[in-house]
């Protein structure tokens, strides 16, 4: 196990390194730079001088080595788009917000989705199943920005039940972003749980369990769920990093001051330090989540061995 973990973590470090190179090259290859003239050209000498001041006139590999050298010492630089704080401070300010929103969404959407999926699987082809399937399909197919706008118009503008947006002043501010963020994942969770359970229900050992007279609760909770969980975890695990790093649309729409928007704005602003930071953060999270998912398999299914 220890050897396995070491091996995986080494692999993760390599991935990290590769991601840093690819991200670095990609961001420098897109047209435009952080100090480009937005409208009118600057005299070339002036432009060159500005580039020199920021080290952007250096060959790419020198810029990369400088960046990585600093990053390994914990200095990720200062975001061009938020120059009054370091990248670390910026992430420290915004990421907890995204974790809070994303984390509660994970708990409610995935938890709720799994429960709905179980109910639908147990009551297949009943009104309950149809409602769950309908809701899940709706959550999957209606984009979150449509849901967000619709909720704002109905609950904030018309009914005035909920605040139109904001963060940290009122618990009701959490409701709409959570629903907008969570409907899709909840739909996926419900659909996969239902499908996976329905599949397990046709297995011989379930028939055996029922045959020996076990109650339905015990059949489902003790025997079926555990086996149905593996495909569910495979699908749902990777949703977690997405949810806890925030999404630009839901966060900006509901004025949640999270990290999500920087995944987009850092690129449109050519904010190099921030692009690198969020890329590395996401690469690290994904690596960890996959590792955790693999570890979870061994807990759920003793037959799985990590080698």
């Amino acid at each position: 196990m220890v050897a396995y973990l070491l091996q995986r973590l080494t692999g993760l470090a390599v991935v990290f390194f590769l991601v840093s190179i690819v991200a670095f090259l990609l961001m420098h290859s897109i047209p435009g730079g952080p100090f480009d003239e937005a409208q009118m050209p600057l005299p070339p000498a002036a432009k060159a001088n500005i580039m020199r001041k920021y080290g952007l006139d250096q060959p790419l590999h020198v810029q990369y080595l400088n960046y990585m050298g600093n990053a390994l010492r914990g200095d990720f630089g200062i975001s061009f788009s938020s120059p009054s704080e370091t990248v670390i401070e910026l992430i420290g300010r915004t990421w907890p917000v995204s974790i809070a929103l994303g984390g509660s969404t994970v708990l409610i959407a995935l938890g709720g989705g799994i429960v709905l999926g179980i109910l639908a699987a147990i009551r297949q082809n009943t009104w309950l199943d149809y409602i769950v399937t309908f809701t899940a399909t709706l959550g999957l197919t209606v984009p979150n920005f449509v849901v967000a706008l619709w909720m704002i118009l109905v609950f904030a503008v018309q009914l005035k039940w909920l605040p139109i947006g904001g963060w940290g002043d009122d618990w009701r501010q959490l409701i709409m972003p959570m629903v907008a963020l969570g409907l899709g994942p909840m739909g996926i969770a419900a659909r996969y749980t239902r499908a996976s359970l329905a599949d397990v229900f046709t297995s011989d050992y379930i028939r055996t369990a029922r045959a020996k007279g076990l109650g339905e609760y015990a059949v489902v909770m003790r025997h079926a769920i555990k086996n149905a969980l593996i495909p569910i975890i495979t699908v749902l695990g990777p949703m977690v990093p997405n949810l806890i790093t925030g999404t630009i649309f839901v966060e900006t729409m509901f004025r949640v001051p999270g990290l999500g928007k920087f995944f987009v704005t850092s690129v449109t602003d050519r904010d190099y330090p921030m692009i690198m930071a969020v890329m590395l953060l996401v690469a690290g999270l994904w690596g960890l989540v996959y590792l955790l998912t693999d570890l979870l398999y061994t807990v759920i299914d003793p037959r799985v061995k990590l080698v």
């Binding site: 503008v157 139109i164 900006t252 004025r255």
Partner: peptide
């Protein structure tokens, strides 16, 4: 706020 919500 996000411009899409300004009017609302």
């Amino acid at each position: 706020a996000k411009p899409e919500t300004f009017f609302a």
